[in-house]
Design a protein around this nucleic acid. Sequence first.
DNA 1: TGTATGCGTTATGTATACAATAAACGGAGA
DNA 2: TCTCCGTTTATTGTATACATAACGCATACA
Lengths: 250, 250
Amino acid sequence: MAEREVDRSVSQTVKAQLALRDQILSGALRPGERISELQAVETTGASRTPVRMALVRLEEEGLLEAIPSGGFMVKAFSERDISDSIELRGTLEGLAARFAAERGVSARELEPLKECLAAIDELLGQVPISIEAFSSYVTLNARFHALLTELSRSPPLVRQIDRASALPFASPSGFVMAQSALPEAQQILIIAQDHHRVVIDAIENREGARAEAIMREHARLAVRNLRLALRNRTHLDLLPALALIKTATD
Amino acid sequence: MAEREVDRSVSQTVKAQLALRDQILSGALRPGERISELQAVETTGASRTPVRMALVRLEEEGLLEAIPSGGFMVKAFSERDISDSIELRGTLEGLAARFAAERGVSARELEPLKECLAAIDELLGQVPISIEAFSSYVTLNARFHALLTELSRSPPLVRQIDRASALPFASPSGFVMAQSALPEAQQILIIAQDHHRVVIDAIENREGARAEAIMREHARLAVRNLRLALRNRTHLDLLPALALIKTATD
DNA sequence: TGTATGCGTTATGTATACAATAAACGGAGA
DNA sequence: TCTCCGTTTATTGTATACATAACGCATACA
């Protein structure tokens, strides 16, 4: 046996999955590129079995695509794939918000969301917003969306929203990051924050339709601004942007 | 090596996945039950590696749940999980219908859908509907929904809808089957068929909002009737019903 | 010169052996 | 008799060997 350094604190499968995801998101593996198992074994430090398990998981996650003749390749996404994914996610979050409103949420359950809201308000108070504050915003925003999703009390829906977020740009953190280069960034964040406030209000008042509508609008804002960001920075390759997101959210 | 009968026409992984799914859907493996790899190896005829791959895929599919200490168990679903999944699916199909309407669909692309429609009309002409005709209906209905989904021209959305259908009752075939025991079954099918007709019309006339609304209504009909079916047959355990569906759709 | 065929190389699919961990059982002590 | 701890056993996680199929290259023939 090769003197492989084995880290026992985490399973080899998980280790391999994280390592490979990193490689994909960082652009080390380019879209369309075939992934060699042996190469993956070398770069991840795991052996072939866990590597294969990781590859299967990443395929189900949507980052990889099975090649009919065998093996996997990194999936390539068009701009439209990504904007569709954002809208898709918004639709699901809309459903979650409606469920929350219709099923009722206690004041106690809304507390953490309001804390998020307040924390974001504080960040947005700074003009102009610093890069560190922006990074905090990304984290808080992701937390807000996760908490909101949970309010639906619907495990299948929560699961589906998690899956829909696999495409990184579809995540709330993702689109926000894409906008960060724009001078209008702060205005966008202020509008998004208003959406957050409205959805909470709608849920408190048990207005399901309103809660749903605002989340869908929230996603449409994201799509519009993704388009804007891509237009303003024509050189912005999606993949490096993904790497940026990863750094910011970790 | 044991004299294992190896079927080379299909990969062992796929074979194991199909076999295990059958076991879950047929009720041979009950919800909450832990799946033993060794047992799965015996029942599927594949060896441990492909069995494990199949287990990972089924987990991602939502039929299995990973046990923290290792291994997998069959996931259990509440009635609400299932009705939520149906509504979830309806929401996604609504988005697909809207995309189709907004993005435009040629008459040629609508042709197969209209053929489906006509074939279903013919089946519904019989009063009362026979069990064989009902079985054909289930197949045609599933085909209609699949074709409709494709019209969205959005790979991420198609993928997500496929995933949402993993919970068998969430599939159009599923809920229909659950209703089959009811005397009102035929009336329900007639209403559903009307929905199908309306969504085609809306797409043809590029009325995105109307196309979306009718698909969501379609799902709500399904939820109402699932509830009704479950109430009328209190002894109806969900799992045996799944077995019924499987038989009908194969 | 272009194409087709065959062989060799390489990578994937599969099987199984080994290691490590968690559960179950039994025994001993309070 | 109940509880706690140790041992045993079973099951999962990992590694690797083997089989098989695909790809590429080279050579020969048209």
